[in-house]
Amino acid sequence: MSPHATVHDIDQPPAVTSLRSKDLLGIADLTPDEITLVLDTADAMKEIASRPIKKVPALRGKTVVNLFFEPSTRTRTSFEIAEKRLSADTLNIAIATSSVVKGETLADTALNLEAMRPDMIVLRHSSSGACHLLSRICRSAIINAGDGMHEHPTQALLDAFTIRERKRQLKGLKVAIIGDLLHSRVLRSNILLLTKMGADVWVCGPPTLMPPDIRRFGVNATSSIETAITGADVIMLLRIQLERMEGAYFPSLREYFNVFGMTEARLKLARPDVMIMHPGPMNRGVEIASEVADGPYSVILDQVANGVAVRMAVLYLLAGGAEHEEAA
């Protein structure tokens, strides 16, 4: 048996065997059982990466379009590898956007794409709710690869998978999430998922970057990093966008690092077997010290590897979904 044992008894049937929705628009729409199904399926998918032939015919003949309105190497590559490992035909469309609105609307792009009958569309867009709009227009299954400040569900799923690999389950774990809580879609997806699965979530950041009513999401909120990470099983660091300084959210990167940066000294407050996570790309010396990023507690590279398995699971589970006669 592999050292990363899964919780499930091998022959225990899962509570659900399929996802209810034709799309994955956000963690908000998933039940805890569905999340478990995705993670269990990802577990099976992960093994494929260790085969000599890293391919299975499951999505043979299916067309998947990666429609990215925001540049992204990491997520797009991860999806592309996942799609190819399932033998799907992939099509990458990168749309350069400028702040001035020009050219085709998202609705028109979607209609044109729809005419070619792709089976699935993976969408990344800078506007929250873009995937919902696409889902209303297209029959294809829509996978949200990040919409504005709203959600990034596959990131949260791969984070959960990474945690579960080491900690066996999410329930009862103290998870601290530190960084730009206001603008982060990774945060939203993660707190939805972790609270659904019964983790004890602590979010931490400057008050200027704290969404209002954050506690209504079922998390503890604090601006004290010590409070957040003491006894933590998992520490997730979110990227601080350098441009936020101009919005007067905090005075300088130096000050941010001093107050909220993850340093080796601060690490000592957490549990000895703490996991350090970061969705990437990292700003070394801003939200995380280099020594911590490269240190023994960091599972950042595991997250990347697991991303492919989790995305394969999502693609597989949605590809088998019921054919819809018309868009909702």
């Binding site: 592999s2 899964t6 091998i10 049937p13 899962p14 659900v16 065997t17 399929s18 199904l37 269990d40 399926t41 577990d43 099976a44 998918m45 992960k46 093994e47 494929i48 299975v56 015919p57 499951a58 999505l59 299916k62 399932l86 597989y316 589970l317 590809a319 088998g320 019921a322 054919e323």
Partner: peptide
Amino acid sequence: LYRDDLMRHPVGPQPVIRRTE
């Protein structure tokens, strides 16, 4: 993942995948 009836069922749950070891 190698079944020839994958993706062909219009309704009904997907078969559950387990790990190959």
